[in-house]
Amino acid sequence: MTGFNVSSGPLKYDTEFAREIYSLENGHHIKKCMQCGMCEVSCATRKEMDYSPRKMFLLLRTGQREEFFKSNTMWMCSTCLMCKVRCPRGVPIVDVMHDLKCYAISKGYTERAQAAFYQSFWKEIWSRGKQFEGGLMARYYLKRGWKDIRKDAFRMKDMGLTMLKHGRMPLMPPKSVKGLKDVQKLVEVAKAQLQKGADR
């Protein structure tokens, strides 16, 4: 929702937090936002977001650390690229959202269902170099725990059966990538390179 007010007190500018965000891989792009509002309109999940991207950028620039971690904005992004192709300032909003997700996870903000999904998905890739639905779902529900599983899970089970029936849900995972070690090493090296860049 866009009509969300941050707080009753004045927004006090915190340059420290803004600087940290700017230093993320695509973080500097946030500076370019001219607050036109195109992203909010373009967003497929705008109704789900508590801050539109442009408003989120304003929050980040003013350094509202807590509001950022509380917000679901980046988790709602479905990577449809609409905002990215439309942004008149050329801000790759989707890519910025990637960074915000990474940043939130790295800081331990993994409460949201999407964060759990992302982590499960990545674990799948990491462990076999390929995606396996069955593995993903198992990891996801394991991560969320029964306390939080809603009726969706049961529906998911039904859906899984239907898919199984139509030959679209293999029970066995695909063969792991032979060069899995290489895949893992590439990721590690790349992460290290990024870290080195950021330290510089």
């Binding site: 866009t2 007010n5 509002g37 309109v41």
Partner: peptide, 11 residues
């Protein structure tokens, strides 16, 4: 027309 009416904080 869909737009963000920013001064009124509304879509």
């Amino acid at each position: 027309i869909v737009a963000e009416d920013q001064l009124n904080q509304a879509l």
